[in-house]
């Protein structure tokens, strides 16, 4: 469940963004930047919650850049996402060296574990669902919320319409640009929260490139989950399971070189993407810029 937290948050971001027709490979960069700013703010203010907030805001900010580039300026969405990813690597690298290297020894700690009274006492599902650190709770909440928003509200209907057929949506008076901006920015906020997980909930430190390609694994989970929040969550559990399993095997000392176990999540991603592609159908206008006539 812990490993699945950042994956699911990023995958939800992917779902929201792609449902509106904007491919978001920048999830990786958003998470990395947010992990960094979240850590810096938490370190400077000695307040983990401000750190989490900073992480989310960073995600929102970068998502705005992605939206501006790919929606308004018509940059190829993949190029724009790629740019953001290397920008995030570069900026976190520069600033990490700039003022964090000595400081990282005594970090601000990690978010506390919460136990929901009564509910956590339920056998079996109690500990699984109700004893977690805050970001994991937020993730569980986000799944339900996004599922509801996307499929049971006017906003969700508009977003999906824009992702399937922007021209038709435009004709009936929906502001395609606005809908896409909102979706991408929301996606950035989710990825930002996922990023904060790494530095503030998991280890209480920032390390260069600590997200390690999880933004892309999240995209694969999104595809495997057929662009649905719940589906994406199940896929993320699967990936997280693979990761946890490879860690577990390592401890038991079975004679497999650790590098092969490390490959597992990545290989699984490749297989899933190849296998799911034929059956899962992407939103029809996914990846296509829309130019108002």
């Amino acid at each position: 469940m812990n490993e699945a937290t950042p994956l699911t948050l990023a995958a939800l971001g992917g779902v929201v963004s792609e449902r509106s027709g904007v491919v978001n490979i920048a999830l990786e960069g958003m998470m990395l930047m947010s992990a960094f700013t979240g850590y810096v703010v938490a370190f400077q203010t000695h307040n983990l919650w401000l750190g989490v907030l900073a992480g989310v805001l960073t995600g929102v900010l970068i998502a705005t850049l992605h939206a501006a580039l790919s929606i308004s300026l018509m940059v190829d969405q993949i190029v724009s996402g790629f740019v953001i990813n290397i920008l995030a690597l570069g900026i976190t690298g520069v600033f990490f060296k700039g003022f964090l290297q000595e400081a990282s020894v005594a970090g601000p700690g990690v978010l506390p574990t919460w136990e929901i009274p009564l509910l956590s006492k339920i056998p079996v599902i109690g500990p699984i669902l109700f004893i977690h650190q805050p970001i994991t709770f937020a993730m569980l909440l986000a799944i339900v919320l996004i599922q509801f928003l996307l499929f049971y509200t006017v906003w969700g209907l508009r977003t999906r319409a824009v992702g399937e057929h922007p021209l038709a949506a435009d004709t009936v008076g929906i502001n395609v640009y606005l809908v896409r901006y909102v979706a991408v920015i929301l996606s950035g906020g989710l990825a930002g929260l996922g990023g904060a997980y790494f530095s503030l909930q998991q280890i209480g430190q920032f390390l260069p490139n600590m997200t390690g390609g999880r933004g892309f694994i999240a995209l694969a989970a999104m595809i495997f989950g057929k662009w649905k929040p719940l589906g994406a969550f199940y896929a993320c559990l699967l990936f997280a399971g693979a990761e946890a399993l490879s860690g577990r095997i390592q401890i038991t000392g079975v004679h497999i070189p650790f590098q092969f176990l490390g490959m597992l999540p990545y290989l699984l991603t490749i297989i899933v993407v190849a296998g799911a592609m034929g059956r899962a159908v992407a939103p029809a206008a996914d990846g296509k810029p829309y130019r108002k006539a």
């Binding site: 490959m263 490749i270 993407v273 190849a274 592609m277």
Partner: peptide, 26 residues
């Protein structure tokens, strides 16, 4: 994977990067 299954190369090539690093490392 792209030609046969339509798997997008952006995801598969990045994943294969990590696999390559791990393989070389091993």
């Amino acid at each position: 994977l792209k030609a046969r299954f339509g798997a997008h190369e952006v995801i598969t090539t990045i994943m294969l990067n990590y696999v390559a690093f791990a393989l070389v490392n091993f």
